[in-house]
Structures are given as C-alpha cells and as structure tokens.
C-alpha cells in the first residue's frame, strides 16, 4: 500500500505521486513516514528529505515548512524545495562561502543567528547534491 505524497510550495506543486516511504527533517529530528502512520501535523526543519519508491531513493533539500500526515496521504507545505539534481552546486558553494565570511564580520548576535541559518541551508544543499553524485558513481 503506497502513500500518496504531495509537495507544494507557495509557487507551485512540486511533486504529486505515490511513494513507499518518506524521510523528513522535522523540528524535533529526522522522522520516517511509512503507510498507516497516525495523523500528524508537524513543523519541518532545514535538511534532507528522502523519498523511497520501489527501492529507489530520491533526495531533496528542504528549508522549513509543514507536513500533514494521514494514513494514506502526506502533504508537505515546503518553504523551498529542490531536487538533488536541480541543485546548482557552484551557487550553493558561493552561498556557503559568503555566509561564512559574513559570520566572521558580524557582531550582532541576532544577525549571526540569521546568517547561521543561511549557512546551514547552503550546507544542506551541498550535502544533498554531493550524496547524489557519490551514489551515481557506484
């Protein structure tokens, strides 16, 4: 019995298909969703989101949002979401370097916290993109 997964952002419906399992980064940590999960509404964190379908894994980089889980249906309202093969690694790398430099210069703790968020998002995107590359080599 598959789960029907729908990922929507404010701009578009990014994905709508049947999958076997979803691994999602939530505010309280990474969770796995299998069919017949109990009804749940949770806050997403920045991180890697994995979809497993017919034994194949597809990686995404997500940066916050919500997830609504019902036994046969999962709805993800993502702030931003990028599939691993859509990620522009060079851009993510630039974003990472810029965030690091700014953190060095910034003294205001609020701004630093904000920049840490940027840095973390860039790192996640790099990680998702790279894990895809490594798997492809195997």
């Amino acid at each position: 019995m598959p789960i029907h997964l729908e990922i929507v952002t404010a701009e578009k419906t990014a994905l709508s298909e049947d999958v076997d399992q979803i691994n999602v980064p939530t505010k309280d940590g990474q969770i796995g969703v299998l069919p017949r999960h109990c009804a749940l509404i949770t806050i997403l964190a920045t991180g890697e989101l994995d979809i497993i379908k017919d034994g194949e894994r597809t990686g995404f980089a997500v940066s916050g949002g919500f997830m609504e889980v019902l036994p046969t249906r999962v709805m993800i309202l993502a702030d931003t979401i990028e599939r691993a093969d859509e990620i522009d690694e060079a851009r993510a790398e630039r974003a990472r370097r810029m965030a690091e430099e700014r953190i060095q210069q910034q003294k205001d703790p609020h701004k630093v916290a904000e920049l840490r968020g940027d840095l973390y998002r860039a790192l996640t995107r790099l990680k998702v993109a790279q894990s895809r590359r490594i798997r492809r080599k195997m």
Binding site: K27, L40, I41, E68
Partner: peptide, 10 residues
Amino acid sequence: YTYEPDQEQV
C-alpha cells in the same frame, strides 16, 4: 492529529 512539537508552536 498529533502535533509536533505542539499546537501553539505549529
């Protein structure tokens, strides 16, 4: 629904 962490935060 179960809310995580809780309703207020969501």
